[in-house]
């Protein structure tokens, strides 16, 4: 039998014998329950649902039926060096970002260069929910229910010309709003890039929200890229500039450490990071168990069927 979308592996499904004993197992875990009322963190967790203004989004056939991480996981565990290099730093520090008003400049090899405001983005493009697994180059992953729209729709509006081969993205540069930019951990502003066919792929989206709400600042408000078959660092946050180019644009992590981070950064369990393995990934989610926090990494993060053809004939261990 073939399914259009990835089905859970048999090993990921709870065996019936255990499922049927669930009441006993819960009782056996009863000592844990007695601790519950003592835990302020758990009580806080239950209250901290999705926050922020709601965005209307329709279901998309390109979404997955993976179980998303909690709002709390997604909004407190971030790599966003503009607000500090610790995973908790962005949630603490990103309140200084002024995500409204916001304008994105679209320039370069396009017939109609110009600017688009966030309001125009929100009213022009129909928003969809895309539940994707986010695989970080640090060998962990989480599942995020993005709200967004295909990047291709935005690019088409500005009419790329025949010289356009790549798309270059730029994050806001403003050390007042982004205190992490006062230290040269990375060359600022953060820049990223895609080949035009990657950028036009229907899986590639510009995200404006999570869990049906506007993006929190720490997740890259108000507009960020999401390319689900690539390592997370490709999915640049708080974008102010999109430029169509003829030459392959520079990308921040590649500029910082070229031996470790390439332009493509496709999720690939066969090609290890020079310092660690990419064969498996730690599954993020508060509440952990012995032996149960890891999964095998899928080629192209599970999207090989849809995207592998774009890299036919390329040596992916060289173009990592």
């Amino acid at each position: 039998m073939s399914y259009r979308y990835k089905q859970p592996k048999p090993s990921e499904i709870t065996p019936e014998s255990i499922y049927k004993r669930r009441r006993e197992l819960l009782k056996a875990a009863g000592f844990g329950a007695t601790l519950l009322p003592l835990s302020p963190s758990l009580m806080a967790d239950s209250e901290e649902g999705p926050q922020g203004s709601a965005i209307k989004a329709s279901k998309s056939p390109l979404s997955s039926d993976l179980e998303p991480n909690s709002w709390n996981d997604i909004t407190t565990y971030n790599n966003f060096y503009e607000f500090g290099t610790g995973k908790g730093d962005p949630a603490r520090n990103a309140h200084t970002l002024q995500a409204k008003p916001w304008t994105v400049t679209v320039s370069g090899e396009v017939d109609e260069p110009g600017q688009i405001s966030l309001e125009d983005v929100m009213s022009t493009f129909p928003m969809e929910e895309r539940i994707y697994r986010l695989r970080c180059v640090e060998a962990w992953s989480m599942v995020v229910p993005w709200v967004g729209f295909p990047l291709a729709e935005l690019i088409k509006r500005f009419k790329p010309n025949s010289r356009a081969k790549y798309v270059a993205f730029k994050t806001l540069y403003d050390p007042q709003q982004m205190p992490g930019q006062r230290r040269a951990v990375l060359p600022w502003p953060y820049v990223e890039g895609l080949r035009l066919d990657e950028a036009m792929h229907p899986l590639t989206i510009l995200a404006t929200g999570i869990y049906g709400r506007e993006l929190p600042n720490q997740n890259g408000a108000p507009l960020r890229l999401v390319v689900p078959w690539k390592y997370g660092f490709k999915s640049i946050k708080s974008i102010v500039s999109i430029e169509l180019t003829e030459e392959q644009p520079p990308t921040s992590w590649n500029l910082a450490i070229p031996s470790e981070y390439g332009f493509y950064a496709n999720v690939n369990p066969e090609v290890d990071h020079p310092r660690w393995s990419q064969a498996s990934e730690r599954v993020i989610g508060s509440g952990f168990s012995l032996f149960g926090n890891r999964r095998e990494t899928d080629p192209f993060n599970g999207y090989a069927e849809q995207v592998a053809s774009m890299y036919k004939g390329m040596d992916l261990s060289r173009h990592f």
Binding site: L38, K87, G287
Partner: peptide, 12 residues
């Protein structure tokens, strides 16, 4: 760990 208070990535 018992109180699930070690953030989103307790293992790390």
């Amino acid at each position: 760990a018992v109180n699930n208070d070690l953030g989103a990535d307790p293992t790390n």
